[in-house]
Nucleic acid binder design. Structure first.
Lengths: 200, 200
DNA sequence: TGTACATCAGTGAACGCGCGTTCACTGATGTAC
DNA sequence: TGTACATCAGTGAACGCGCGTTCACTGATGTAC
């Protein structure tokens, strides 16, 4: 039963969107082709009408998930007013490692969700990830720059952002790692990790 | 061909030791029972003489790997002389996110290596991990305490250690995540992440 | 605009491979006497 | 200490399940006239 090309395109879009969330929640290996298609209301057989392989969808989902994060961070970086930008970044950091973000991996930072699996992914997926992460980091640096150290050199500002972002990702991943087995420790990580860490 | 009980024990020990490294390098799902036995010079059939299941070995390997890290960190915490302890911690941090550590996951921090997979592990494995991580963190706090903020309260010292350790883990995981696809960015993370970050 | 036919998105059965697990078997070890 | 037998660590074939992928088929869509 052939369907409209517009319908077909919408189906593909829905599969990618669902995959983007499922992969973040359960990992690439934790979701099967059948699951991915079911999430879009389809059956597994039609998968290869849209994608060359499961790996192809992984790369595409990765690309789109990171692109969304990049856009969001770029939007912050483009805030002209320094005070407003600084406040936006503070809010961003605060949400980043919250309990809410920890418990809803599907809807949050794909960089943190995928990082641990990347060393074992195909070249396509790894490239999509690396490209997105680099762009994201540039935006993160731009959004952070001048927030509190206007006189710092570009290099130092970037280094500082690297450290800051490492901390956020590490805290989120560690909080998730013990969420079930040691909720108390997990909460400590999710809540005590300082939202605005620049109290020097 | 039955063997000495001592031999059998040694075999089991060797399997666990190999598993501890292989899991860190390739992830739990990335290593099969046959691989694990082969690494110890055995064939897969005998696996169930030693372990109830692959999951059982995962838990045991996790337990032992983290225990080793806890011991190492406890040793630092037990250094009496503050200056020497502080220096030992500085060296520890410097090595933690080095290119060397990044490229040899099998021989380095199991907490960082396993963190990303933990949300999807069995209760046994997750418990072994959480127990070890809590002990490790306590040791990390003890080893860091008094290093530079002698007057800080215990709570603040712990919070500071949480942040510090999150940063180390995040940097290591992120550096590994792009090691193949963007070596330049990976090197940036592995080398620029400040070794002794307490420049407040 | 209407008709005839080719196309092709989606379906569900089937294939094949990998991997965790089981099992019959071997023969050296450990033990009972 | 020596002998006979039970035990059991290790072996490799085989099982069974899950999952990525393929394929014949369906029937509505899109197109040529």
């Amino acid at each position: 039963m052939r369907i409209t090309q517009k319908q077909s395109d919408a189906n593909k879009t829905r599969v990618i969107a669902g995959a983007s969330k499922l992969f973040r929640e359960k990992g690439f290996e934790g979701v099967g082709v059948a699951d991915l298609m079911r999430a879009a209301g389809l059956t597994h057989g039609g998968f290869y009408n849209h994608f060359a392989s499961k790996d192809g969808l992984e790369a595409e989902a990765c690309r789109q998930a990171l692109a969304t994060s990049v856009d969001r961070m770029s939007a912050v970086a483009e805030i002209e007013d320094k005070t407003a930008r600084s406040a936006a970044m503070a809010a961003y950091r605060r949400n980043y490692v919250s309990k809410k973000a920890r418990d809803a991996a599907a809807a949050n930072c794909p960089m943190a969700a995928f990082a641990g699996e990347m060393p074992r992914q195909s070249e396509d997926v790894a490239t999509a990830y690396a490209t997105g992460l680099r762009e994201y980091l540039d935006a993160f640096v731009a959004a952070s720059a001048g927030a509190e150290t206007a006189r710092a050199s570009a290099k130092r500002a970037r280094q500082k952002a690297l450290v800051e972002y490492s901390m956020l990702v590490g805290a989120l991943i560690l909080a998730r790692s013990v969420a079930k087995a040691d909720p108390e420790l997990s909460d400590e990580w999710a809540s005590q990790t300082p939202p605005q860490r620049n109290r020097c």
